[in-house]
Design a protein around this nucleic acid. Sequence first.
DNA 1: GTCAGTGAGGTAATTTTCTTACATATTTGC
DNA 2: GCAAATATGTAAGAAAATTACCTCACTGAC
Lengths: 287, 287
Amino acid sequence: MSSFNILQEIAAALESLNRSERKVADVILSDPQAATRSSIAALAKAAQVSEPTVNRFCKRFNTAGFPDFKLNLAQALASGVPYVNRNVEADDTADSYSPKIFEATIASLAYAREKISPAVVNRAVDQLIQAKQILFFGLGASGPVAQDAQHKFFRFNIPVAAYDDVLMQRMVAAASATGDVIVIISYTGRTRELVDIAELARGTGATVIGITAPNSPLARHCTVVLGVEAPEDTDVYMPMTSRIVHLTVIDILATGVTLRRGPDFLRHLKAIKDSLKETRYPIEPLA
Amino acid sequence: MSSFNILQEIAAALESLNRSERKVADVILSDPQAATRSSIAALAKAAQVSEPTVNRFCKRFNTAGFPDFKLNLAQALASGVPYVNRNVEADDTADSYSPKIFEATIASLAYAREKISPAVVNRAVDQLIQAKQILFFGLGASGPVAQDAQHKFFRFNIPVAAYDDVLMQRMVAAASATGDVIVIISYTGRTRELVDIAELARGTGATVIGITAPNSPLARHCTVVLGVEAPEDTDVYMPMTSRIVHLTVIDILATGVTLRRGPDFLRHLKAIKDSLKETRYPIEPLA
DNA sequence: GTCAGTGAGGTAATTTTCTTACATATTTGC
DNA sequence: GCAAATATGTAAGAAAATTACCTCACTGAC
C-alpha cells in the first residue's frame, strides 16, 4: 500500500504544508534525483531547515524515515510517471504538449493499474467465458472502444457484436436472454439511455458488465463493475485518457479469456494472425 | 553508462562471483524487494557473511556503497522493466496479468514519447489546420482508431470522415483533391491496399499523413509520417499497445489543432461538451 | 614439505547518518 | 493578551555504513 507515487503526493500536498515543510518540498521537487542521493544533513542545509524537520517531513508521507523516503522517491522516479500535473497550456508548442499528453495518459494508466481489482477482473472473465453471445455497447467516444472490443473478441469463436447507437442497443438489450453478456462502456456512468438499457437487459436475465465509473447510476445496474474512476477532467474538453484506460481494460479481459482457453487456443490465434500475411508487403531486411 | 538495470547485471555476473559474493547475490535475487529495505547488517546475516563483504559486493557493481546500491535496486524494481520477464505467461492469474498489461502499455507510451518528433507533429498540424476536408483511414484494429479520430475532429468544424473498409477508402482517395488531408493509420505500414491507396491519394494532390511504422512502404508514400516503431510483438496475437499509441498520437494532433485555433475556440468546445448534459443523470454529491 | 606471497574474508574501530528527546519559539483561539 | 496548540531547532544518542587492519587459506618456488 502506502503511496502510489510519492512525488505526486508531495506535489498534491504542497498547499497544506507549513513553512519549513514547504521549503523541504520545494528542494525535493526541484531536483528529486539529487534528493535521492543526498544525506538528511545535506538536504536540511539546502532547504535551510533542521534535520529533524526533514525527518518529520518524511514521516508525514507515510515512510519509516529518511532512508525509506529516499527509496520511495527513487522508485517514483524510476516508474516513469511524471509527478507534476502537467496540463496543456495555451502557449504550449509541440515540444511541450506532446510529452504532456503522453505523460497524462501514462499517469492515468498507472492510476488504473493500482485501482483495478483482480478479483473483479476474474468475475468478469468468468462471465465472458460462459457467454452464449457477447455484446459491446458504447456511445460517443466509447463507440470506437466497443468496436475495438468486438475486433478482439471475435477471435474467441463466440458470437460478438458492437453497437454504438441507442436504438439498436435498446432493441438488442430487450431481445437479450440469460447467457448473453452485455458489456457497457461509459466514462461517466451517468448517461440516462445506457442506464435504462442496463436495467432492461438485467430484466431479461442477461449479464451486464460495466466498464464505467464506480458508484455511478450505471454501475448500480451491472452484474460486474470494472470501475475506473474519472481522474479529473483536465482534458481540453474531449475524452482522452478515459477511453485509453477502457481499451486497456478490454485488453485485460481478452487476455483473461485467452488464458482460460489454454495453450491450444494460441494456435488458433496464430492462424488468424497469419491469415493476414497475404495482404502485406514482406518485412524488409535492414540495410 | 553505468547499469541499465542492476538486477540484470547481478544475475548475469552470478557465475563470475566468488563464494561469499555469490551468497550475497543469492540472497538479493531471491527477494530484491526485501533487500531494498534491509540494513547492511541484516543482509550480511542473511547471507552469512560479514558486513564489509556486502559492502565490497556493492562496490563491485559500480555503486558508491550499500545505500547507493539499495537505491539502484529500488529503481530497477520500479522501472517496470525488471529482470524478470514481464510478458504474460500461461499460468498467470488476474493478479499478475492485469498489472503486466498496464505496464506493457505504459512502457510503449514512454517509448513513443521519446521517439516522436515535435517538428513532425507541427508539420502534421500545419496540414490539418489548412485542410478543406479530413479523412481517417484504418483497417482491422485501426478501424476503431480512425472512428475515434473522427469523433475528435468533427469538433473543429471541418468536414471529417472515417473509413474502415478498403473499397470506400479507395473510392474516396481517388476522388480526393488538393486541400484534402488523408490520415492513414496502420501498425505495420505494410498492408498492400493501404500503400496503394496512399499512392493514389498523392496522385490527386491530396496530403497524406501516416501514423505508421517509419521506413515502411506506406511511410514512403506519405507527405508527413508520424512514425511509431513497432515494439516487438509480444502480444498474445492481438494488437494491443500499438493502437493505444496511435490513439495518443491522435490526441496530440487534436490538441495541436485546438491550440492553433486559439482561446476563443475553447468556448466552442465547451458548448459541445455541455450539450451532453441533458442526456445524463446529475453528478451525485458525496455522502 | 615449508615458507613467502597473494588475496579472500572477518573483526573492530571510526565515521557518517539518522532518530529521538527535549527545549524554545511561534502561531491560533478565546 | 494569554493559554494552548503547533511548529521548529538543539543536542544527545542510536543505528548504520565504511575503513583500517588482521588472519587465514591457498599458491607456487625452492
